[in-house]
Write a protein that binds this DNA or RNA. Sequence first.
DNA 1: TATGAATGAGCATTCATTCAT
DNA 2: CATGAATGAATGCTCATTCAT
Lengths: 198, 198, 198, 198
Amino acid sequence: MTSRTPGRPRTKPAEERRDDLMLVAERLFLEKGVDHTTIEEVTQGAGVSKGAFYLHFSSKADVIEALRTRFVQKLLNGIVEEVGKQQTDDWNGKLTAWAKACAMGYLNAARLHNLVFAAAPPPSREGLTNNILIDNLQQLLAAGSRERAWSLQEPAFTAIFLFNALHGVVNRNAIGDDSAKRTELLRNIEESVLRLVR
Amino acid sequence: MTSRTPGRPRTKPAEERRDDLMLVAERLFLEKGVDHTTIEEVTQGAGVSKGAFYLHFSSKADVIEALRTRFVQKLLNGIVEEVGKQQTDDWNGKLTAWAKACAMGYLNAARLHNLVFAAAPPPSREGLTNNILIDNLQQLLAAGSRERAWSLQEPAFTAIFLFNALHGVVNRNAIGDDSAKRTELLRNIEESVLRLVR
Amino acid sequence: MTSRTPGRPRTKPAEERRDDLMLVAERLFLEKGVDHTTIEEVTQGAGVSKGAFYLHFSSKADVIEALRTRFVQKLLNGIVEEVGKQQTDDWNGKLTAWAKACAMGYLNAARLHNLVFAAAPPPSREGLTNNILIDNLQQLLAAGSRERAWSLQEPAFTAIFLFNALHGVVNRNAIGDDSAKRTELLRNIEESVLRLVR
Amino acid sequence: MTSRTPGRPRTKPAEERRDDLMLVAERLFLEKGVDHTTIEEVTQGAGVSKGAFYLHFSSKADVIEALRTRFVQKLLNGIVEEVGKQQTDDWNGKLTAWAKACAMGYLNAARLHNLVFAAAPPPSREGLTNNILIDNLQQLLAAGSRERAWSLQEPAFTAIFLFNALHGVVNRNAIGDDSAKRTELLRNIEESVLRLVR
DNA sequence: TATGAATGAGCATTCATTCAT
DNA sequence: CATGAATGAATGCTCATTCAT
């Protein structure tokens, strides 16, 4: 009589339903990839009808967008908070706080980030071939370390770190033919790389 | 016997046909994304029938794999060559050669890399939201630089460099709960980050 | 606490609501076609909830029926009134009054009639291909007129008039194989057609 | 024996397949209306897979268009042929030939015409309410005939003939407010109507 | 080798209608 | 009288893959 009819209320606040759907979508997208997750699977997982999905999102792409936005926002909030805890003039502290908070955010979100930004990586296959590049770089780093050229405690870590830095920096500067820009890019790369190994 | 119109041979060496198909596939994948490129478009572009595709590749995923392998192999060859040119004990030279060759390879391949590893993110939208993180990091780097905490000539560059390094390093260590590993990861991150800004 | 915001009454006499809904439905049906007008659009236009629609009509088809009935009734009333104004024995006056009132009714209702009777043909495409028949007929009429076979002032008008008369008369007599009926139909057509051109 | 493998050839000339599909589509569209005929029903009726439909038509609307074009073309051919049989200067003969051939074409095609031009009339309901207008007109015509105002042998026929002529002529001149055009339209209507009853 | 007609599972999206409140 | 969240059947269209020739 209170209204708690056994069988769960068929109607929920919109916000809650939306969250349910996003939750399930996130899980399924991560498990099977966006392309191989159907709307129906999402709604079934959320215990609603297929049509209900479109009460909250205008399309499949719309959920991804929502997931993406939410993820980035949460992460940024966390970072800002951590950085704020540092002394005003402790720049190293701030920077490492930034990096750590960012890393922790990703770690906690596990593969979600990839999902949200790359829309369905071919499951697990991703890094495999990449490895032959990273392995090669790692060998170089290890060799140089052994020769005391640098002092690296974890060549494996640095290889991954550096490879991804390179990859990203190039991606965001993908300008075809501007020779001046290329030169500058390479100069920047050189400097950063050398700092990294001391 | 009668229908042998003099003109292009309708039959080509398998290797050549395969290359034709890969070439077209690569171009179309880049132009419109993997998911929105059909096998038929690929075969039409290569001037062969739809069925011919399956004479050379077992599936759509198979071309992607082939494209990926070819890309990585070429890149690695180029890198090894450049590194080989350095003096045996010039480790800094070797490392920067590695980084530069890798960067150049990507630059030359432009967006191909992304394609090959991430199976077509919805074009261009990708980095947009990411930017709010990178922007934030950039501001931090710029602020610290102004205060003479570090000597960075290009905070914008470093922000991108660092963000991607972090992202990649975390992705490849995505282990849920191993607390020891997390601690070590964070320590490595801290050290690398600090080296990066001196 | 009551939530009864002073303003428009949320409740209206049934008759009025029904009229509101019919009005909006008519407009939308005309603008976008029946099939592409949703109940929700209708209720939104009328400022009521979706459910309210079903308080006044049992289904979508039901509004169309209501619209149709109302249209025909109004038109008939207008015609009867005009015809009634004529002298009792002025038959030509009565007939032309009928025809004119009918024509005016349609003109005033514009495309509504079509809508109501044909359930939204894909807008505008309708007559295009028909034209090749009417054009052909018009050429015949113009040619005969030039040769003084008939005295037609507006072959274009007559072509349309006649074509539609034929079309309608056939449609309403569409009996497959009754040969006698067909013969009579053709005789009637012949007679009427000849009268039309004198 | 030559190629008649039991089990029907799974592959047919495109033209033939296309015709099969159009044939089935036409029948189903007529039986149940366009909107209530699914592509799958069409392909099942033609004994092919759903996908085969899209090998020959780009969409559902495309078949309708094809059906329409084919219908009009055939009809026009028949008319032109009949008209051509008349004496060069027998204008009445030509005109009645036109009208009869057109009528016969429609009769033979039965409801196809309607279908093709109006895209699914709500089955059978169509003329019902219209009747109250036509009935009224018929009564007027019959009354005038009894009074010897006109000499109509078939008021029922003439009522339908005239009603549809009016309807069509108005539809094709549906200009909102051009008063001059309206006046002329009414004058043309008046003249034609009077000719029709002598 | 090469063809291209044929397949058919697969899926996003729409919307009339219901009903608990 | 009124609401609007929820339903879920219905359907057009795509496309990777097969296979008879």
